[in-house]
């Protein structure tokens, strides 16, 4: 059984260790915490700032520090950070980084439905779409804590503004080790298949993995690709990997048909004149006030394993 961890704790632990040898790192929070953050803010009180519940100022102060050459982490709850402070991210990170170096790592915790019972204000179903729309931004959507741990180095060395989309729940690892994973490639083919390939990001890769394993028991080989760097993604290598399939099923805890992971896959395949079919699985165009666990919300939205398997079987028949 692999260890279960939260992405935020693993990432913050990595940043914390890095801060001992790199005094050009600042960690800013909009009054949002984590067990591992307690140690960081105690040991680096001169480089940790709680700006208060003020996401716009979080991004603006982070920008100012980054303009002076600091590596900055701006940490808050995902929907509030990405949507209340969207214009700050657009103007001061995405836009300004085209003329000045701005290494701000915007960390949003609470990807997709991970804050399940907190309701629609806390569900974050738009962030992939709106962050992908911004030039110069890098968009990281890890499926597990090992990828997240590996991203610490990327966050320091790649001097670009980034959005890090972390799940709020503790999750097991998907990858046994990540030494051979090339973050800049943006994806990993976890399993090769025959006709159908699941393309997932974030938490949905866990579901996709379960589904692929269940079907394998029935002698059906389904491919699985985990997309962890939505922007920039090595599109040519992605296409080389998926071109052998007849059907791709995109899988994300986000609205579909609006330019999220499904839009990314669609444009990569479509721009190359491929006839590979794409089935988009995610959230439909409405908010959910339904109360219940993440699994329950998945069942309501046909994102549960049974629905996924049904879609795959249908794909294999057609």
């Amino acid at each position: 059984m692999t260890e279960i961890k939260t992405m935020r704790d693993v990432f913050i632990e990595g940043v914390y260790r890095r801060m001992f040898g790199d005094d050009r790192i600042f960690f800013l929070s909009a009054d949002f915490g984590s067990p591992k953050l307690d140690k960081l803010r105690e040991d680096f009180s001169d480089r940790f700032i709680n700006v208060g519940i003020a996401e716009q100022n979080l991004v603006n102060v982070a920008t100012g520090l980054a303009l002076e050459g600091f590596t900055v982490y701006a940490y808050a709850i995902a929907p509030f950070l990405t949507m209340r402070a969207y214009e700050q991210i657009r103007n001061n990170l995405s836009l300004l980084s085209q003329t000045r170096q701005v290494n701000v790592n915007v960390i949003g915790v609470g990807a997709g439905l991970s804050y399940d019972v907190s309701g629609p204000t806390h569900h974050c179903l738009e962030d992939i779409i709106i962050m992908r729309a911004l030039p110069n931004m890098h968009v990281f959507s890890p499926s597990d804590w090992r990828l997240t741990e590996k991203f610490v180095d990327y966050s320091v060395t790649v001097k670009k503004p980034k959005y890090l989309r972390f799940d709020a729940k503790p999750l097991p690892a998907i990858y046994k080790e990540t030494a051979d994973i090339d973050l800049r490639k943006g994806f990993c083919e976890i399993a090769g298949g025959e006709k159908v390939c699941l393309v997932s990001t974030g938490f949905m890769t866990h579901k996709a993995l379960n589904v692929a394993q269940r079907l394998k028991g029935e002698g059906i080989n389904v491919g699985l690709i985990d997309v962890f760097l939505l922007k920039p993604l090595d599109e040519d290598r992605f296409f080389e990997t998926v071109k052998k399939y007849e059907l791709l099923i995109s899988l994300e805890e986000a609205f579909v048909n609006k330019g999220g992971l499904d839009g990314l896959v669609s444009s990569i395949v479509g721009n190359r004149g491929s006839r590979i079919r794409l089935k988009r699985m995610g959230l439909k165009d409405e908010y959910s006030f339904s109360q219940g666990s993440r699994d329950y919300l998945h069942r309501l939205n046909a994102l549960d394993e049974e629905s996924l398997i049904g879609n795959i079987r249908e794909g294999l028949r057609s």
Binding site: N60, A62, G64, L67, E68, F70, N91, N92
Partner: peptide
């Protein structure tokens, strides 16, 4: 910011003071 002498993006109001706070902390 593309113009020499301008430090930041200025077309939308309300951004400058917060960015300046970050610069002030850095200095």
């Amino acid at each position: 910011a593309i113009i020499p002498g301008y430090e930041t993006m200025n077309g939308s109001l309300g951004h400058g003071l917060g960015v300046a706070c970050g610069i002030a902390i850095a200095l």
